[in-house]
């Protein structure tokens, strides 16, 4: 094993952090490192926490960390925040609500900028999960960016997806029937001390009605993440889902689907790098030709690809 991978799996936090950066930056040599780490993965339980901005995902994650730590599990956290589409910069502030765990050596927290990913995760998230898994963290929690309706990439990375809702969304739940409302293994109505929480629970139940007959029917529960109310029950239900997916056919199928999209994503990334390279040399000239209508975009694409 290379020194960096060896150091990381041996518990060197700097090495882990560096590996995650390399994955985010798609640095040279990162694929070889991931290949070295992969045989050491497959042990961690990956939980995705997703929901709209301000739903309380970070606070809930903070409480989940606390709970898992009290049971002796080590926890890795990957928290994604949006990047600016203009400058590529980002202010990553998810740690703010979890900072009390910083002194705990059993917790590793990492903030990720979405860097142009539109599915609620970031470019390095998939690798980040594998790295933390290989480094021995028992539970890996992924906190997505605040999502709307269709940012559902988390289902392709997490074993268990927890969708966090809050009172005040009202009828939006109806509109959210497709997309994010379909990916939850568990629904949490957070800030349940606010008025309207019961109504949200009922609306979610209405949506879940349609899923009856499936092997795993998601449940909905209320929490007040701020004071920890409902968190033990949340963990109990999350664990129930974990146990179910480990032994059921549906769980196996889901794992295969995840692996499939993982491999396809890797291929697409490679192809898109190749596409980029295909025309670096002649880009200006070809663009100008298309602008002057001497060539058309379809012919150019066809010609470039034929040389690939």
């Amino acid at each position: 094993m290379s020194t960096l991978a060896e150091r990381a799996t041996g518990g060197d936090v700097r090495a882990m952090a560096r590996l995650i950066s390399m994955a985010e930056d798609r640095a040279d040599g990162v694929d070889a490192l991931m290949r070295e780490l992969y045989p050491h993965t497959g042990r961690a339980w990956t939980i995705g926490v997703t929901g709209s901005p301000g739903a309380g995902k970070s606070t809930l994650t903070d409480k989940l960390i606390e709970h898992f730590r009290s049971e002796g599990s080590t926890v890795g956290v990957l928290a994604v925040d949006p990047s600016s589409p203009y400058t590529g910069g980002a202010i990553l502030a998810d740690r703010l609500r979890m900072q009390r765990h910083t002194d705990d050596a059993g917790v590793f927290m990492r903030s990720l900028g979405a860097r142009g990913s539109l599915g609620g995760l970031s470019r390095g998230t998939r690798e980040g999960v594998l790295i933390l898994d290989a480094c021995g963290y028992d539970v890996v929690i992924i906190e997505t960016v605040g999502v709307g309706q269709s940012e559902i990439d988390v289902m392709r990375v997490a074993d268990t997806v927890c969708v966090v809702l809050v009172p005040g969304l009202g009828d939006d739940i109806q509109a959210m029937k497709a997309g994010i409302m379909e990916i939850g293994d568990l629904f949490v109505v957070n800030k349940a001390d606010r008025s309207g929480a019961d109504r949200v629970v009922n609306e979610v139940r209405g949506v879940l009605e349609f899923l009856k007959g499936r092997e795993w029917v998601p449940t909905v529960l209320q929490t007040v993440a701020e004071n920890g109310e409902g968190v033990p029950e949340l963990v109990r239900l999350l664990r129930l889902h974990r146990e179910h997916s480990l032994k059921s056919e549906a769980g196996r199928e889901r794992e295969l689907a995840r692996l499939r999209s993982k491999i396809e994503d890797i291929m697409l990334e490679r192809l898109s790098d190749r596409v980029e390279k295909l025309w670096t040399v002649r880009r200006e000239e070809l663009l100008e030709a298309v602008r002057e209508r001497k060539l058309d975009p379809y012919a150019v694409a066809e010609e470039l690809l034929s040389k690939a």
Binding site: S83, S84, T87, G88, G89, A90, I91, L92, A93, R95, L96, Q99, S111, G113
Partner: peptide
């Protein structure tokens, strides 16, 4: 264009 981690 930088990524800022704000600790609070």
């Amino acid at each position: 264009g930088m990524e800022i981690i704000y600790t609070g």
